[in-house]
Write a protein that binds this DNA or RNA. Structure first.
Ligand SMILES: [Mn+2]
Ligand SMILES: [Mn+2]
Ligand SMILES: [Mn+2]
Ligand SMILES: [Mn+2]
Lengths: 215, 215
DNA sequence: TAATATTTTTAGCTTTGTCTAAAAAATAAA
DNA sequence: TTTATTTTTTAGACAAAGCTAAAAATATTA
């Protein structure tokens, strides 16, 4: 499988979770920063290889084979992210780009030994679950901060948006995985939330609250 | 720079040491398992980028810029080989293929942090020197086992041939970097050498003796 | 339901890196 | 120093992955 094919598979996998009735050509193009016509070409190729079920104009689905391949790429990506943070001292906002390259290195032994070296981690630096060698991964009951009731104290366990901008905002506010958060007030008008973290009070927008996973 | 360009540069770099009066098109083709016509095309491209000095029919030389680029790829390759052996438990005959892929990951921070994580190693698992971030690397006075006089006891410090076949032969004979070797006899007729290693006597061919570096 | 807008696909072109076959240059042999 | 051989380059073609512009299908709106 080529790097390009792997990138398409991974994007289809991520989009499948959001739109379970077939992934759109345009959605894929948007994620890969390419054109719809290029996506159509690739879908035919992936279909020939039986990695996706594709019918003209009807959206695309991963086959079981395609889903497993996608999970293995996600596994690689997230294990490398753990390596970069835990072993090489990268910050959580610096790892994604490099992991995008490392995830395509083809070696079963490499990834399984890396997994072992890292002590079989269950989650990556952004709180996302890491599939094991069989493609199984933990499902954790997590909620968005925006859904939490006033007065509750919860813990940050992940981010929905993993963009550098968002992660650096969180750095600035000293919010990281494991940070405890108490919801003090919610503004009905615009969804703004007042929270307490690290013994300080902070007002965050609904956009922030909609991208922080807590438990 | 593309992966393909990097592979050409690296091969030209390695061949330059052997043929300092210009590297031949066919030699490059042989190393990369490609055709001479493809090499010619690439040489023009590398020349346009001022990575090599190339004149039709006259062989090719690396420019200073090209030499530094090549050294950085060699640096990546050898650091990853150290990582695979030291941290992930690979054997020295298992690392080359994976390192061929890892060496092309583009990230200054990645490679410099890896270097630090590995404690700034000077040599890779095959005894080859690792260039530092500036492209400098140690030169060590080493000889081929075939050049050693009878009666001398020396230490294995590297291999000239890094093929899987040769490395596995050495595994079988329990020869690795650091192994002490005493030269007992040399056969004038065919260059066969009788040596003592690990308190055992072993007869090796001239081909073996010509591919083992000792000091 | 008919007209309009959006999405998706097709057709045809481009770039990168490869190939084969033929031509040209350099080397070696006679 | 011709002739033959080997090496290298050129010419033309191909597959992968992308693009633009136009056509076709689907979805939306009036
Ligand atoms: Mn990532
Ligand atoms: Mn991640
Ligand atoms: Mn190697
Ligand atoms: Mn090596």
């Amino acid at each position: 499988m080529t790097t390009s094919e792997e990138n398409y598979l991974k994007v289809i996998y991520h989009l499948s979770n959001l739109s379970p009735k077939g992934v759109n050509t345009n959605a894929i193009a948007g994620m890969l920063d390419t054109k719809a016509s290029s996506v159509t070409d690739m879908l035919k190729k992936l279909s020939d290889k039986e990695l996706v079920n594709y019918q003209k104009y009807q959206g695309v689905f991963l086959t079981e084979k395609g889903k497993l391949s996608a999970k293995m790429i996600v596994r690689n990506h997230r294990l490398w992210e753990v390596f970069l943070v835990e072993k090489l001292g990268f910050a959580w906002d610096e790892v994604h780009e490099v992991a995008e390259e490392l995830e395509h290195i083809r070696s079963e032994k490499l990834i399984n030994q890396l997994d072992k070296f890292l002590n079989f981690p269950s989650f990556d630096p952004h709180g996302d679950p890491i599939p094991n060698a069989k493609g199984e991964m933990p499902t954790i009951a997590k909620q968005l901060l925006s859904e939490i009731e006033i007065g509750s104290t919860i813990t940050c366990v992940g981010v929905k948006d993993t963009s550098v901008d968002f992660l650096q905002y969180l750095n600035k506010q000293q919010i990281s995985l494991g940070t405890n958060i108490t919801v003090l007030e919610k503004e009905a008008f615009d969804g703004t939330i007042k929270i307490e973290i690290n013994h300080a009070v902070l007002v965050i927008s609904d956009k922030i609250a909609n991208n922080l996973f807590v438990k």
